[in-house]
Amino acid sequence: MTYKLILNGKTLKGETTTEAVDAATAEKVFKQYANDNGSDGEWTYDDATKTFTVTE
C-alpha cells in the first residue's frame, strides 16, 4: 500500500510517499525520514487516507 507523509515543519515542509506492508512499517520509514531532515513534532495518522502528518 502507498502511505503519504505531510510535513508541516518550521523549516521543512512538503509531502512524500512510501510503499509499505502496513501503517506501522510506513511510520518507521517516515519517522526516520523526518529525523534525518531535522523535523520533530506532533504526529497524527488518518487511516482512511493512509496519511501521516507531522506538525512542528
Rank of each mutant, 00 (worst) to 15 (best):
M1R: 11
M1G: 11
M1D: 13
M1L: 12
T2G: 04
T2F: 08
Y3T: 02
Y3H: 03
Y3C: 03
Y3E: 03
Y3R: 00
Y3D: 03
K4G: 03
K4C: 07
K4A: 04
K4D: 03
K4M: 06
L5N: 02
L5S: 01
L5A: 01
L5Q: 01
I6T: 04
I6F: 06
L7N: 02
L7P: 00
L7I: 14
L7E: 02
L7G: 03
L7Y: 10
L7K: 00
N8E: 08
N8C: 14
N8P: 05
N8Q: 10
G9F: 15
G9W: 06
K10R: 11
K10L: 14
K10Q: 11
K10F: 12
K10H: 12
K10I: 14
K10D: 08
T11F: 14
T11D: 10
T11E: 10
T11R: 07
T11M: 09
L12R: 07
L12A: 12
L12N: 11
L12K: 10
L12S: 13
L12V: 13
L12I: 14
K13V: 09
K13C: 14
K13M: 09
K13G: 07
G14V: 15
G14E: 11
E15T: 12
E15D: 05
E15A: 07
E15N: 06
E15Y: 13
E15L: 06
E15V: 11
T16P: 02
T16Q: 09
T16L: 15
T16A: 11
T17F: 13
T17N: 05
T17E: 08
T17V: 08
T18E: 03
T18R: 04
T18C: 15
E19K: 13
E19Y: 15
E19M: 14
E19R: 12
A20N: 02
A20R: 02
A20S: 06
A20C: 08
A20G: 03
V21N: 10
V21G: 08
V21F: 12
V21R: 12
V21S: 12
D22L: 02
D22G: 02
D22W: 01
D22K: 01
A23Q: 11
A23P: 08
A23H: 08
A23S: 09
A24G: 07
A24M: 10
A24W: 09
T25Y: 07
T25L: 05
T25K: 05
T25D: 07
T25F: 07
T25C: 08
A26P: 00
A26I: 01
A26T: 00
A26R: 00
A26C: 02
A26H: 00
E27T: 03
E27S: 05
E27D: 03
E27K: 09
E27P: 00
K28V: 09
K28R: 12
K28E: 08
V29Q: 06
V29Y: 15
V29E: 06
V29W: 14
V29F: 15
V29L: 10
F30Q: 00
F30W: 01
F30C: 03
F30K: 01
F30T: 01
F30Y: 00
K31Q: 08
K31I: 07
K31C: 06
K31E: 03
K31S: 03
Q32F: 04
Q32G: 06
Q32I: 09
Q32V: 08
Q32L: 09
Q32A: 12
Y33G: 01
Y33P: 00
Y33W: 13
Y33Q: 03
Y33E: 02
Y33A: 02
Y33N: 02
A34P: 01
A34M: 11
A34L: 14
A34K: 03
N35G: 09
N35W: 14
N35R: 15
D36E: 13
D36C: 09
D36F: 11
D36K: 09
D36M: 12
D36P: 04
D36V: 08
N37D: 04
N37M: 15
N37E: 07
N37T: 10
N37P: 04
G38Y: 09
G38M: 12
G38H: 08
S39T: 15
S39C: 15
S39Y: 15
D40I: 14
D40K: 13
D40H: 14
D40R: 12
D40E: 12
D40F: 14
D40Y: 15
D40G: 10
D40W: 15
G41C: 07
G41Q: 06
G41H: 06
G41M: 10
G41W: 15
G41A: 04
G41N: 06
G41R: 04
G41L: 12
E42K: 09
E42C: 12
E42P: 03
E42V: 14
E42G: 04
W43E: 00
W43G: 00
W43A: 01
W43S: 01
W43T: 00
W43N: 01
T44S: 12
T44P: 00
T44V: 10
T44L: 07
T44N: 08
Y45S: 00
Y45I: 01
D46Q: 04
D46F: 03
D47K: 06
D47M: 07
D47W: 07
D47Y: 07
D47R: 06
A48P: 06
A48C: 09
A48V: 11
A48T: 11
A48H: 09
A48R: 09
T49R: 05
T49W: 03
T49L: 06
T49E: 05
K50N: 07
K50W: 04
K50V: 02
K50C: 06
T51P: 00
T51I: 04
T51H: 01
F52Y: 05
F52K: 00
F52H: 00
F52S: 01
F52Q: 00
F52T: 01
T53Y: 11
T53V: 08
V54G: 01
V54T: 02
V54P: 01
V54C: 12
V54A: 02
V54F: 12
V54H: 03
V54W: 11
V54L: 13
T55I: 08
T55R: 06
T55V: 08
T55S: 08
T55M: 07
T55E: 06
E56K: 05
E56I: 12
E56C: 09
E56R: 04
